[in-house]
Nucleic acid binder design. Structure first.
Length: 827
DNA sequence: ATGGTCCATCTTTTT
DNA sequence: GATGGACCAT
């Protein structure tokens, strides 16, 4: 009857069929965890549980979307759309939007991403007259964030003895004060950072009993994915939400806990069993993903960790091939090897691009692979890096939109108050900030009341024009949809036109990004119910004015064709959760901040996937390259100081190994570029933890054909001599191109040589006298005081401001503005 | 006020 | 090797 149960093993069935009461599923890698979760939700619904009463929390939007799709596939009745499935952050953001007023926030609160948040920290540090060389915004922010993840308030932080001791020891006693100031500032800005989305949710449930009971009654069944990666804040929220019905189901694998840097703690798994009287525990130990060899390696490696929940992963899959261990001389060769191998495997075994993944410890490692793949003409997709919405031009545009919805958002205001330049420079901005702080009003309020603060006439006019402009934009919110408002803003502010007129490669790309943004807003508006919700304005916000004339569309401004291969903007609707019908600009803005790179890219495209191991959690690939297995890189130098850190690195290694279904390569390079300079690394200690019988080392030999056979440790000689260029190196060079020192200097033909930044100083001739250059012509030889001798290539620019392009013997081509620079005409 | 150039710092992982 | 900040020239 219930055919969705077919194809489940006994353990899986047990988990699916358990309906009421707390349930903990310990799911080994590749044991069908997602299948169990989705089937369980489908089963709940088949048993009569209303979709509206089910809450499922995941760690990525993508996981949420996929889960919903799979449930719909099982049920096929359209009910899945009513489920409340999403990431912790996006689900809570949506709830808080409706409840913000209770906590003193505007419903259109801005969500600050990490960059925004760090800027606030920096502002605060500077205003406190602290040295931001010592109080590095990055470091301070991380410390604050860790505290927040552990539900430690600024006050508790200041009063906690051991925390204070720590800060004293690092000579940063003011962090507590910064924390406090930062918190106040965000509140004043009407903004929440990522951590606030959890904390405020917690405060809402904790301090407002009616809110608590409302959501407890709504969410009768709660499911949590990747439970091993929850932090204390998330844990407390789940505990509160689940307290009424105790129908909480958590799925996790302690061996895959890799987010402790974000405050996650495995303790939550152990604690779960203590929180409820009768927790049913189901262990999924059969792996359906990988070959026996791969699984053996994974089990072997993880056994080097001390504390873990007892379980044994097994598989009925074939033994498979041995894991290939590959050594290369440099990071570039590593890239070349991987690209070569992918090409070869595609031909020999009929793999597609999408069967391959290149996984690494740090984002910076992607470059070498990127270059090699491009050279081979293999299509690839990089995940990680900066998301579409973090690009500068996009953030600027978004900043305009944010202000319309929340004028107190100081960070966004500062971003665009003088972009494009409108005569409100740094000095003025500092004065505005001062006035805001002295009068305890917001940045925006100072602008509105600029007259009272004695700005210079020109500045005052510029400010008043700016305020007028923003207000006129904001007046559209009540009757125009997000797309219309965004278009209008783009046209009126001139900054899109500036980008349009910039014909450089980057300029064109930026312009296209803006277009893409506008398209995505349009899509988002159209895919919704079509109703544009009126924006609720704050009393200190805008005056809503009456209908204004539509500006006619300007020719050529938005008429370029959209690139056909664009997959960066997927249907925005998919990202929404169940009962979302709010199509206001405010709702749009809150969503996009929570989107990541992975949400914007299609996983189905036939491309090789490049990403960090963290980003690869939960995914699987036919062929996996685990790259950069070197000491200091993986395990990372930052994480080898305590056993806990090292064990987490090892779990990370476990994760990368278990991503592979059929084939696994482990690669490492003797040397690689870091900070632009070459460094040497020993092979990772994790390599030596793999029993030899599982390894194929035919590519790792090279320089190690000595009596002791393979040795992951380089000889003392090799270390002392920094690798050198011995016989093995020359062999490798033959196969994989020149070593980095040389290959680095090769500039691709299609790029003109980069202008030299370093000026080779020239001592002017004793007879140097500047000539009259008003009739300068191409072909003439000239001397420049700094750049030396050269030949005029051409003279361009206007008659008022002629510019000569001169090719100097020592310093290459330079543009010389004849009105200012002094040139001596030699001939 | 603006815009360009030079220097320091950064890199662990992410919602 | 990039990015933001400081500094300088216009």
């Amino acid at each position: 009857m219930q055919d969705y149960l077919q194809g489940l093993n006994e353990r899986q069935k047990e988990a699916v069929l358990h309906i009421d009461g707390p349930l903990m599923i310990i799911a080994g890698a590749g044991s069908g965890k997602t299948k169990v979760l989705t089937t369980r939700i489908a089963h709940l619904m088949a048993c009569g549980v209303d979709a509206f009463n089910i809450l499922a929390l995941t760690f990525t939007n993508k996981a949420a979307r996929e889960m919903k799709e799979r449930i719909e596939l099982i049920l096929g009745n359209g009910e899945a759309r009513n489920l409340y499935i999403g990431t912790f952050h996006s689900v809570f953001a949506r709830i808080l939007r409706g409840e913000a007023h209770r906590l003193g926030y505007p419903s259109n609160f801005t969500i600050y991403d990490t960059d925004d948040a760090k800027n606030v920290v920096k502002t605060v540090i500077n205003e406190m007259n602290l040295d931001d060389k010592h109080y590095k915004p990055n470091t301070v922010y991380n410390r604050i964030s860790s505290a927040k993840n552990a539900l430690v308030t600024a006050e508790e932080y200041a009063n906690d003895y051991s925390i204070q001791q720590e800060d004293m020891r690092s000579n940063r006693p003011a962090i507590a004060k910064i924390f406090d100031a930062y918190t106040r500032r965000c509140f004043k800005n009407g903004a929440m950072d990522f951590d606030d989305l959890l904390i405020k949710m917690y405060e809402l449930l904790k301090n407002f009993p009616d809110a608590l009971s409302k959501y407890q009654r709504k969410f009768k069944y709660i499911l949590i994915d990747e439970y091993q990666d929850t932090n204390p804040a998330q844990y407390e929220i789940i505990k509160l939400l689940g307290a009424m019905h105790e129908n909480v189901c958590v799925v996790g694998d302690d061996a895959q806990s890799i987010y402790s840097f974000r405050g996650a703690t495995i303790e939550n798994i152990l604690q779960f069993q203590k929180d409820y009287d009768d927790v049913k525990v189901v262990k999924l130990e059969q792996n359906y993903r990988s070959t026996q060899n791969i699984l053996n390696v994974a089990n072997e490696v993880i056994s080097h960790n001390k504390g873990q929940i007892e379980k044994t992963l097994f598989t009925e899959n074939t033994e498979g091939e041995r894991i290939r261990l590959v050594r290369t001389m440099s990071d570039n060769e590593e890239g070349k090897f991987v690209a070569d191998t992918i090409q070869e495997q595609k031909l020999r075994n009929h793999f597609n691009n999408k069967d391959f993944a290149i996984l690494y410890r740090t984002n910076a490692q992607s470059r070498a692979f990127e270059e090699a793949l491009r050279r081979m003409g293999i299509a690839y997709t990089i995940y990680g890096g900066i998301s579409f919405y973090q690009r500068k031009e996009i953030k600027d545009y978004i900043a305009y939109l944010r202000i319309l919805v929340n004028p107190n958002d100081e960070e966004s205001l500062k971003r665009i108050i003088n972009y494009p330049a409108r005569g409100i420079g740094k000095t003025s901005i500092d004065r505005i900030l001062l006035a805001a702080n002295e009068n305890n009003i917001s940045f925006w309020q100072v602008l509105e009341r600029a007259r009272e603060f004695g700005f210079k006439a020109g500045t005052l006019e510029a400010i008043e024009n700016f305020v007028l402009m923003i207000k006129s934009f904001a007046s559209m919110l009540g009757h125009k949809n997000a797309y219309e408002v965004a278009m209008h803003v783009g046209k009126q502010t001139n900054f899109v036109r500036e980008l349009f007129n910039d014909k450089s490669t980057e300029g064109v790309a930026r312009y296209e990004n803006i277009q893409e943004l506008l398209n995505s807003i349009k899509e988002w508006v159209d895919n919704g119910s079509g109703t544009v919700m009126p924006i609720v304005m704050d009393e200190d916000g805008f005056i809503i004015e009456d209908e204004e004339e539509d500006t006619p569309v300007e020719e050529g401004l938005f008429t370029r064709d959209k690139p056909a291969d664009d997959n960066a903007v997927e249907s925005a609707e998919d990202k929404n959760i169940a009962d979302d019908t709010d199509r206001s600009l405010g709702s749009y803005l809150q969503q996009i901040t929570l989107l990541t790179d992975a949400d914007e890219k299609s996983a189905d495209a036939d491309t090789v996937k490049l990403m960090t191991i963290h980003a690869a959690k939960g995914l699987e690939f036919g062929c996996v390259f685990a790259a950069g297995l070197e000491e200091n890189l993986f395990p990372n130098a930052m994480s080898i100081n305590t056993r806990e850190e090292l064990e987490e690195e090892r779990r990370l290694f476990y994760v990368v190994v278990t991503r592979a279904k059929q084939k696994l390569w482990i690669t490492y390079a003797n040397s690689r570029y870091r900070f632009g300079s070459l460094i040497q690394n020993d092979p990772s200690r994790f390599i030596s933890e793999i029993p030899e019988e599982y390894l194929d080392k035919s590519y790792a030999g090279g320089g190690f054909r000595n009596s002791s056979g393979f040795s992951p440790q380089r000889s003392a000689f090799e270390r002392m001599n920094g690798g050198g260029f011995g016989n093995a190196e020359r062999q490798a060079e033959k196969r994989y191109g020149p070593p980095p020192g040389r290959s680095k200097t090769a500039t691709p033909e299609y790029l003109s040589p980069k202008p030299q930044n370093k000026v080779i100083e020239h001592t002017p001739s004793a007879s140097f006298v500047a000539s009259d250059t008003s009739n300068l012509k191409a072909g003439q030889k000239v001397e420049h005081q700094k750049f030396g001798f050269g030949e005029v290539i051409n003279v361009e620019g206007s008659a008022q401001n002629p510019v000569a392009l001169v090719k100097f013997e020592l310093n290459g081509e330079k543009k010389i503005m004849l009105n200012y620079a002094k040139l001596r005409i030699v001939s």
